[in-house]
Nucleic acid binder design. Structure first.
Lengths: 124, 124
DNA sequence: GTAATCAGTTACCTAAAGGTGATCAGTTAC
DNA sequence: GTAACTGATCACCTTTAGGTAACTGATTAC
């Protein structure tokens, strides 16, 4: 796990921070979902997410491998291919994401009073 | 709600982003918990959280008021006092935080293999 | 008048996250 | 040989979150 300092953290909040580190940031969830959807190769994942740069994807994939959300296998072939696959551990995030989604939908209703466009149900 | 752009967002992820915006950042959860614990006044909250500066607290309290997590009442008195109180809406975050905590604890076990120090159960 | 308390605001600075574009090594097809 | 594909890495720049310290205005106690 990427050890961030979180010096301000009480012991009870540490695991919450850990989780937020794992799924926070601009791209992590999009990448995770792309891999869940079956995209396996670097370019494949990259192309599935508009505006995502190779540099950021490369860094995020490393983080996610460290966090055991994905596995990385290099296939010895002719144009060298790398295969990224989601782990079972990554799937345990579904419940967390569901709760985040659920609360967000409710929050939108409260703040925008239904004036907001409907959002799609999350499918992960 | 503070409208961030999230241009990269699919419709399904938008509410997830909203939630992460509301509880993300270095201080938001600590401030929320402090208010939940009964701290009502600006200086009281500030003093309850080491290293938190007035500038950041001021900004975060505004955000939280916008997001209807707290109410702000100015009491006309002699040393002017402001009263911050948690809303019922803020309490609906407990479940979300519980799931984040839960996943985080499990993740720590997996990554550090129980070598990590025990963390306190969250009490919010 | 002086100090101290309340609840903030302001200007400036630093550090981290993320974006941009070039480059690389290996291999294949032409 | 040249272009194109694979999976990246590198140096540099911008943007944003957060930190630091001074300051304001109102009021009370001395």
């Amino acid at each position: 796990m990427k050890k961030k300092e979180h010096k301000e953290c009480t012991s009870a909040l540490l695991p919450v921070r850990d989780t937020l580190d794992v799924i926070g940031g601009k791209w992590k969830l999009l990448i995770l979902i792309s891999v869940w959807e079956g995209n396996k190769h670097f370019r494949e994942i990259e192309r599935s997410i508009p505006k995502l740069s190779t540099k950021v994807l490369s860094k995020e994939l490393k983080d996610m491998e460290e966090n055991q959300l994905i596995t990385r296998t290099v296939l010895n072939g002719f144009p060298v291919r790398t295969e990224y696959k989601p782990t079972n551990h990554s799937k345990t995030l579904e419940k967390v994401i569901f709760e985040l989604h659920n609360w967000g939908v409710n929050h939108r209703k409260l703040i925008f009073g239904d004036k907001s466009e409907t959002v799609d149900p999350i499918r992960v």
